[in-house]
Write a protein that binds this DNA or RNA. Structure first.
Length: 152
DNA sequence: GCCAACGTTGGC
DNA sequence: GCCAACGTTGGC
């Protein structure tokens, strides 16, 4: 089993929005960065991800989600009406992938970016690095467990 | 709103 | 294949 961190802007799609979805599940579409896409393609059903709120008043980890469907073509790339439309993608040769994520658990205590930065054992996490923008990133088991412990 | 860091695009 | 210009991310 692998562990991940996924970012979302809560003004666009928050952890609470996920909780309110049918089956508490959402297709994680709109990822248009190759490294993030490649990470999603490595995700296995049953993997767990930290759900991180970015570009907001208090950035940080709010909860846990489970990967419930492995990578498949992101339909928004074919949709001319979509903001995520990509004219270079075709049904025969899709360029972008998505996975399905399902609400798993809300942390009892929000773990802010400030808290992550203040924890020496977490200073290798990508999310605490300056200028790090990758929206789907791997975390180690140790990092994952540490963040969960801080959220208890 | 500012701006640093990064990724992508496109001319050459 | 280089690299300048541009657009985006995201903390502050």
């Amino acid at each position: 089993m692998n562990y991940w961190l996924i970012k979302s802007e809560p003004d666009t799609f928050s952890f609470n929005d996920l909780k309110k979805r049918p089956k508490k599940t959402e297709g994680w579409d709109g990822v248009r960065n190759y490294q993030a896409r490649n990470n999603m393609r490595l995700m296995k059903k049953g993997d767990i991800a930290l759900f991180y709120h970015s570009s907001c008043k208090e950035p940080g980890v709010v909860g846990l989600v489970k990967i419930t469907k492995e990578a498949y073509p992101d339909p928004t790339q074919f949709d001319k009406q979509s903001d995520y439309y990509d004219p270079k993608a075709t049904e025969d040769n899709p360029r972008w992938s998505q996975v399905d994520i399902t609400f798993l658990k809300e942390l009892k205590h929000f773990v802010s970016l400030k808290d992550l930065k203040a924890t020496p054992s977490l200073n290798a996490m990508k999310v605490v690095q300056k200028g790090q923008r990758l929206s789907v990133q791997p975390v180690t088991k140790g990092e994952f467990e540490q963040v969960c412990a801080m959220g208890e």
